[in-house]
């Protein structure tokens, strides 16, 4: 599917109030997000699979941003995208948070979690093993909790 359709996919209802898609509205909407997220594509009619991984990732983000989000859950938002694109994604999250959007971000990259979050929940075996203030913690502490240490201590 092309870039435009991918971006608009999640809110077709709004684009098609009478059951017919308003293509002009969809086009301007898609154009806006391609601009805002700096998605590098030859055109809105380009097929998404022909884009690079990072740009595909941005399209996915655009798709969910179309809606008036209050809560955004992202799982490994920067996997497989290069450093420059990562930075753009981070900036985007910051702008969103500015607008009062709450973001839950899962990440395997500890520096990313530390660098971006306000609070960090550490999960171990399906339960939350600890909550940390991102500004006062470090990688060791997270790993410690991720390995389930706190819990075993309590159990004893």
């Amino acid at each position: 599917m092309d870039v435009q359709y991918n971006i608009n996919m999640a809110h077709l209802k709004q684009l098609a109030p009478m059951g017919v898609i308003n293509d002009r509205e969809g086009h301007s909407n898609a154009e806006h997000y391609v601009d805002a997220l700096r998605i590098r594509t030859p055109g809105l009619r380009q097929r998404a699979r022909n884009l690079s991984g990072g740009n595909q990732q941005k399209i996915v983000l655009a798709k969910w941003l179309c809606n008036d989000v209050k809560l955004l859950i992202v799982d490994e938002p920067t996997r497989g995208i290069d450093v420059g694109a990562k930075y753009e994604v981070y900036e985007l999250f910051n702008r969103l948070s500015d607008q009062g959007v709450a973001i839950i971000m899962i990440s395997s990259e500890l520096p990313e979690v530390l660098g971006m979050s306000d609070r960090i929940l550490v999960v171990h075996e399906g339960t939350i093993n600890g909550e940390l203030d991102a500004k006062k913690t470090n990688q060791e502490e997270i790993l410690y909790l991720a390995a389930g240490y706190n819990k075993t201590k309590k159990a004893q």
Partner: peptide
């Protein structure tokens, strides 16, 4: 038990692969 997010906050979820991070969300 409980998970809260505030407006304008980024809540990071860390944990090892397969710890249940994704499953929760």
């Amino acid at each position: 038990d409980k998970l809260e997010v505030r407006a304008g906050e980024i809540l990071g979820i860390a944990g090892l692969m397969g710890s249940g991070r994704s499953e929760i969300v």
